[in-house]
Amino acid sequence: KKVIATKVLGTVKWFNVRNGYGFINRNDTKEDVFVHQTAIKKNNPRKYLRSVGDGETVEFDVVEGEKGAEAANVTGPGGVPVQGSKYAADR
């Protein structure tokens, strides 16, 4: 997939743990970017499923997906693991 931007910061608008996807609002352009659970590179080690939490600040790359921009290599700011959704089960 073609990389559009790297190391972008954004805020998770919403993320559905059961369906495994959601949207991140970019801090720079204010665009909403699709995020799939497979794009989460550093999950919270205490969580079973990969997820990001609503309102969480994340860092990610933006790539060209089939339906427009989507997030890739999602981590917390500075490459730390994401916090994850409060609806995702703990280990």
Rank of each mutant, 00 (worst) to 15 (best):
F23N: 02
G65M: 07
Y48I: 11
N19G: 10
V17T: 10
P77K: 13
R50S: 11
P77W: 07
A89P: 15
V74F: 00
E31Q: 15
I24W: 00
K47H: 08
R18L: 11
D54I: 11
A39D: 06
R18V: 13
V80T: 13
S85F: 05
I40C: 02
A71Q: 00
G55A: 09
N44Y: 06
D32E: 08
R26Q: 04
K2Q: 06
A39H: 06
T75Y: 05
K13H: 08
F23H: 02
G20V: 01
I24L: 12
N19W: 09
R91M: 15
V63M: 14
E56R: 03
F60W: 00
K86H: 11
V82G: 04
E59C: 11
F23I: 04
G68C: 06
K42Q: 10
A5N: 15
G68E: 03
D32A: 07
K47Y: 08
Q37W: 11
K67Q: 14
Y21H: 04
P81M: 11
K86L: 10
V52A: 05
V3T: 09
G55M: 10
F23E: 02
K7M: 08
D54P: 09
D61M: 08
V80F: 13
E64L: 13
T38G: 08
D61A: 06
E66I: 12
A89H: 15
T29F: 03
K1Y: 15
N19H: 14
G20A: 07
Q37V: 11
R18T: 11
L49W: 08
P45A: 13
T6F: 15
Q83R: 10
H36L: 03
S85C: 07
E56F: 03
D54K: 15
Q37F: 12
N25S: 14
K41V: 14
E64Y: 12
V35K: 01
P81C: 10
V82F: 05
A71I: 01
P45D: 11
V80R: 10
V63F: 10
L49M: 10
G20F: 02
G84H: 05
G79K: 08
N27H: 15
V8T: 07
Y87P: 07
T38W: 05
L9I: 11
G79E: 08
A39T: 06
S85R: 08
E31R: 11
I24K: 01
V8M: 05
V17E: 07
N73V: 04
K86T: 15
T29C: 07
K42T: 13
I4S: 08
V12C: 08
V63A: 05
V12Q: 01
Q37D: 04
D32V: 05
G20D: 02
R18D: 05
G55W: 06
K1N: 10
A69L: 12
Q37L: 13
Q37N: 11
K41H: 12
T75Q: 13
K86D: 12
K47L: 07
D28C: 03
T11S: 09
V12S: 01
K67N: 11
V8Q: 06
E56G: 04
A88S: 11
Y87D: 05
I24C: 02
E59D: 02
I4H: 07
V8E: 03
K42M: 14
G78V: 07
F34Y: 10
S85L: 06
K7Y: 03
I24E: 01
F60T: 01
T57V: 15
Y21P: 00
K13A: 09
P45F: 10
I4R: 06
N27R: 10
N43A: 11
T11E: 11
V52W: 06
R50A: 08
K30N: 15
A39S: 10
G10D: 01
S51H: 07
V52S: 02
E64W: 13
K67F: 06
V17C: 13
V8L: 09
V74T: 01
E64Q: 15
K67P: 05
R26H: 03
D54F: 13
G20R: 15
K7E: 11
G10T: 00
T29P: 01
E31V: 13
W14M: 03
V63R: 07
K41N: 10
A88D: 10
Q37M: 13
K30W: 14
F23W: 07
F60K: 00
F15E: 02
A89E: 14
G53R: 12
R46N: 15
V58E: 00
G79C: 08
T11L: 06
V3Y: 15
V35L: 13
D61V: 04
T11Q: 11
V80E: 14
A88R: 09
A89F: 15
N73P: 00
K41Q: 15
D61L: 02
E59L: 12
G65I: 04
Y48Q: 09
T38S: 13
E70D: 03
K86A: 12
V17L: 09
V3S: 08
V82P: 06
A89T: 10
G76K: 07
Y87Q: 11
V12H: 00
T75H: 06
L49D: 07
A39C: 06
P81G: 09
V62H: 04
A88H: 06
E64P: 07
V33M: 03
Y21N: 02
T6H: 11
G84L: 05
K41R: 10
R91I: 11
E66Q: 14
H36V: 03
N27D: 14
F34H: 02
T29L: 05
V62M: 09
T38N: 09
S51R: 05
T11H: 12
V3D: 07
K2E: 05
T38L: 09
F23S: 02
G84W: 05
K30I: 05
R46K: 12
E70T: 12
G79D: 10
H36M: 03
F15I: 01
D90W: 10
R18Y: 07
V62S: 01
T75V: 11
V3C: 08
G68V: 03
E56L: 04
K47W: 06
Q37E: 14
K86G: 10
D90Y: 13
I40P: 00
F60G: 00
Y87S: 08
T29I: 09
G65W: 05
G53Q: 12
K67S: 09
I24S: 00
K1E: 06
A69S: 13
Q83N: 14
G84D: 05
K86F: 08
K30T: 11
D54S: 14
F34W: 11
V62L: 10
T6R: 10
N73F: 07
R26N: 03
P45H: 15
K41W: 10
P45T: 14
G53F: 06
V33D: 01
T38P: 00
V35Q: 01
G55R: 10
A69T: 13
R46Y: 15
V3M: 09
A71K: 00
